[in-house]
Amino acid sequence: MIDSVSTPALAAPAIEVNGLSAGYDGRVVLKDVSFSVRPGEIFFIIGGSGCGKSTLLRHMVGLNPPLSGTVRFLGRPFSQADAKARRELLKTFGMLFQNGALWSSLTLRQNVALPLEEYTTLSPREIDEIASLKLGQVGLSGFGDYYPSEISGGMRKRAGLARALALDPDIVFFDEPSAGLDPVTSRKLDELIRQVRDTFGTTIVVVSHELASIFDLADRVIMLDREQQGIIAEGPPRELAANSRDPRVSEFLHRGDKLA
């Protein structure tokens, strides 16, 4: 049974996941997962290590085919869409990978410019200007000509975010944005995520087990559990921490109180 704290329904969902089962090589990791994310929401997928957070994200964005179930973005089917429709939807979202996943043979400017070159008919000068603007938004002005190997881990993540924002997407996915970062850099990245949402109204989906980020940023969370292979709690994190009767949820979220 899902431990749920209800929140009022607002606009039509930006993301709808229905009955999604996910896994690799015949091994089922998640079974029958359903949830929706509202436009402009900062939505966290949380849970302990190995519970399937990143697996869920990879299946949502199409990096792995779902075993069953559907994913819809902005009301349009994604997981079962044909190649053309899928490509159109891919334009509407960006993703920041755990280690930035910048293309190592390209400079930061070229990394940010590539999606624009692929999907727009802008002139090289305009693309260059947009790339500089995006790098500036994440605090990397002047680093456009650096290669990923020449900058720190935190800077790589910010550059990855600039690339994810290049096409002004409606939805941005973050896979463990705090992983490998010190607490100060991690909080700065959190602040950047909030700015993106507040400025552009972007829907944000974050996979994380970083409690400070969860309580600081999340409007709503779903919590996954490895044993149950699915969602065990859904709702705003503070309300879940205060009202949840599930000991797994309370234990996970109250460690945050202790840390704070």
């Binding site: 964005v61 490509r87 334009k91 993703m95 280690n99 996943a101 293309w103 999606p115 999907y119």
Partner: peptide, 15 residues
């Protein structure tokens, strides 16, 4: 590139 998720980053961009 695959180990560093660079190939995944291309796929997510539809390239």
């Amino acid at each position: 590139m695959k180990a560093n998720e660079e190939i995944d980053a291309l796929e997510v961009l539809g390239i």
